[in-house]
Computed example of a mutant assay.
Amino acid sequence: MLEIARFLLPGAPQRVAPFSHAVRAGDVLFVTGQMPTLPGGGMVLVEGGIEAQTRQVIANLKTVLDGSGGQWERTVFARVYLTAFERDYAAMNAVWEASFPPGGLPARTCVGVTALAVGALVEIDLVVAL
């Protein structure tokens, strides 16, 4: 039987809905979409535009990975959600690409959405190989 572990991490960003921060199923870790909120700041968004928000989402994802046994560089798939796709796509991509080693980009889907929780501009979720 496939081993499943659910992670509710006290040091991770505050959850904006009822979910686990991450779920491990066998050798795969599914990380819930993270928002650009400040650690310990409740539902407070990081100040700044899409670049600052993307950097904060990545930092929050790395915090969840650290607490659940995953590694950023082992990300195999990501989904990115943007509320202002045409305006923010290029700037988000620049921050995203710089966060991985050369040649280390995961597969990815990026979609435009009408809104995100807490008024965020960006949300990203991951699938990570353990």
Rank of each mutant, 00 (worst) to 15 (best):
F85N: 02
A115L: 02
V80Q: 01
T109V: 15
V113F: 11
L105P: 00
C110E: 10
E86S: 14
V118Q: 05
C110K: 15
A107E: 08
A91I: 08
A129V: 03
L116N: 05
V118Y: 04
P101G: 09
G119R: 04
A98E: 12
L105S: 02
G119A: 08
Y81P: 03
R79K: 13
V122T: 01
L116A: 09
A90Q: 12
G112Q: 09
P102R: 04
V128L: 05
V80T: 15
A91F: 03
P106V: 08
E123I: 00
A129M: 05
G104I: 00
Y81W: 11
R79A: 12
V118P: 01
F100T: 07
V127W: 03
G104S: 09
L82N: 00
I124P: 00
A120E: 00
L130G: 05
A107I: 01
A98H: 06
G104F: 06
A98Q: 12
A115G: 10
A78I: 10
G119W: 11
A98T: 03
A94E: 13
F85K: 06
A78Q: 09
D125W: 04
F85M: 05
V122W: 02
L121P: 01
F77N: 07
A129T: 06
P106R: 01
V111M: 10
R108W: 06
V111C: 12
I124M: 07
E86K: 13
Y89A: 15
F100W: 09
Y89P: 07
G103R: 07
C110N: 10
G119D: 06
G112A: 12
L82C: 00
V127I: 13
V111P: 02
V122M: 00
